[in-house]
Amino acid sequence: MELAEIRRKRRMVRRYDPAAPVPEDALERILDAGLRVPSAGFTQGVSLLVLDGPDKQRYWEITTDPEAPPDRWLAGMQTAPVLIVVWTDRTAYLDRYAEPDKGWIDRDPVRWTAPYWYVDAGMNTLALLYAAVDEGLGACFFGVPPDRIGPVRAAFGVPEHHELIGVVSVGRPAEVAARSRRGRRSAEELVHRGLWGHAG
Rank of each mutant, 00 (worst) to 15 (best):
G138Q: 02
P145S: 03
V144P: 04
P173Q: 03
A139M: 07
E175I: 02
V176C: 07
E160S: 11
G157Y: 03
F142P: 07
P159W: 09
R153Y: 12
G150A: 14
G138L: 02
V158M: 13
R172H: 15
S169C: 06
L137M: 00
F141V: 15
R181P: 03
R153M: 15
G138K: 01
A174E: 04
A174R: 04
A178Q: 09
G150C: 06
G150F: 03
A178R: 14
L137D: 00
V158K: 05
G171I: 01
F141H: 14
G138H: 01
R153N: 09
D147I: 05
E160W: 10
F141Q: 13
G143A: 13
L164Q: 11
V152Y: 08
G157D: 05
H162E: 11
G166S: 05
P159D: 13
L137S: 00
E135G: 00
A178V: 12
S186D: 08
E189D: 05
V170K: 03
G166A: 09
I165V: 15
E135P: 02
I165Y: 11
I149D: 06
E189M: 00
G166L: 01
E189T: 04
A178T: 12
R182Y: 14
G183Q: 12
V167D: 10
V152W: 06
A187T: 14
V168H: 04
R148N: 07
G150P: 06
P145Q: 07
G150T: 06
F141E: 15
I149V: 14
R185A: 11
G183N: 11
P159E: 14
F142Q: 15
V144F: 12
C140F: 04
I149F: 10
V170H: 06
A154H: 08
V152A: 02
P145L: 04
S186M: 11
A177W: 01
A177N: 01
G143M: 08
S180G: 12
P146A: 07
E175R: 05
E189R: 02
V158C: 12
G157N: 03
R184N: 12
F142W: 12
P151L: 05
P151K: 08
R181Q: 08
V144D: 09
F142G: 15
L164S: 04
A155Q: 01
R182I: 13
F142C: 11
F141P: 11
